[in-house]
Amino acid sequence: MSSTATTTRERVPSALRERLSDAVSQLAAAGALIVIFIFLSIVSPAFLTANNLFNVGVQISVTAIIAVGMTMVIITAGIDLSVGSVAALSGVAGALTMVNMGFPTILGILAGVVIGAVAGAVNGFWVTVADLPPFIATLGMLTAAQGLVFVISNGVAVFGAPSSFRLLGQGAVGPVPIPIIALIVVALAGYFVLSRTKLGRYSYAIGSNPEAARLSGIPVKRYLMIVYIISGALAGFGGMIAASQVNSGQPNYGIGLELYVIASAVIGGASLFGGRGTVAGTLIGAFLIALIQDGSVLLGINTFYQQIIIGIVVWLAVYWDQLRRKKLQAESE
């Protein structure tokens, strides 16, 4: 097509700039992460030791693994409130398959993941087929799964899984604890899915404008279903790691966990309005929370204060996101 005779006065090809501005929100969180890291290294000699750092990683691994799935859900403009109780359900039910049904360790872990995935599929059903808002659909699952855990366990912890089950939460490859390896694998997979696959691309498109996605021929419901299944499966996997860490399926596990998971994603720049979020950002968010928790312990700060600090961080992070959104809206027509 003929080009206009006028000269374009648009300057510097700004792919780089674009990327930077996308990363700014993460940089804010990343900046905070680095500042706290340096601060703790200076004030607490116990902080900068391999032992402590691995500890921090192990402690946050379950939250962070589940947060990878949550990031995907949030990118589609959804939310999954059920991850905490689904993690508990998987931990308990997975343990039961090994204790009562004689499943070998690997199959037991897999059973936990599958149970999580099924819970996710039920969420997906309510969101896509029944068209409920994700908040309500997953709130229902939060309660239902919690009840189910108590039904199948009679409210008591499930002990007696094979000793090899401990490896998942307590083992290590060389010096690196297995939960951290699991986190790295899940995070890389999540990054890959979001940046390189149809599923990832369509998740962003659906979150950004579901109607445009539908009219572009994207099977929106199918992809939403997949995303909720992934979130459920990762909650199940996280639940199995947590169970392995304490050697038992705990019916009380995971209460309030979803809040930390959502906080991680949101601090890391995922927008609850959909269309935005990255695995890297979410990891930064999770580790920021982990450092606040670890730092509080090292410095002898009361856990209640630690929760207050995390609350403030969430406020600031979302406020930042909001500001940026408003600015963008004002700028575009």
Binding site: E18, A205, G207, S208, E211, S216, G275
Partner: peptide, 27 residues
Amino acid sequence: KGEGLALQLGVDKNITLATLPAWAGLV
């Protein structure tokens, strides 16, 4: 705006929205 574009995605991603070149799910 309401039905045609994913405003938060790039020009490139919008252009390929209906015809994402992909093989086995990989873009």
